[in-house]
């Protein structure tokens, strides 16, 4: 963007100088045309960069969303596994107590 501004300023100065001094010199006209071309190219580059940045922002947002969803799934799976483990331990305890009870007279 700084480059674009600088080139734009130079082009503006060249055009102004051309207007002020009558643009009679061919080299000056050519330089002004080059500066204009460079400014246009820089403007196009800036637009492309902005587009790419927006696209990247969108991708990052999507990735964040996907990661959040994955974290929620992992939390849910952990909770299920934890419940299953508690249930398994409770069953083992129940089995052990039943066994001991059955061994009483």
């Amino acid at each position: 963007m700084t480059k674009f501004k600088t080139v734009s300023k130079l082009a503006a100065v060249a055009i102004t100088a051309g207007m002020l001094f009558g643009c009679s010199h061919a080299d000056l006209k050519s330089a002004i045309a080059d500066a204009q071309s460079t400014a246009d190219a820089a403007a196009a580059d800036a637009a492309d960069a902005l587009s790419a940045a927006n696209s990247a922002q969108s991708t990052a947002t999507n990735a964040q969303s996907t990661a959040d969803a994955a974290q929620r799934d992992a939390d849910a799976a952990y909770s299920l596994a934890s419940d299953a483990n508690d249930c398994c331990e409770a069953n083992t305890d129940r089995l052990d107590r039943m066994f001991k009870k059955s061994m009483q007279k």
């Binding site: 066994f99 001991k100 059955s102 061994m103 009483q104 007279k105």
Partner: peptide, 12 residues
Amino acid sequence: NKPAGVGMQVTH
């Protein structure tokens, strides 16, 4: 008559 209970705290 319940040999599996030997080694436990199960009697009277």
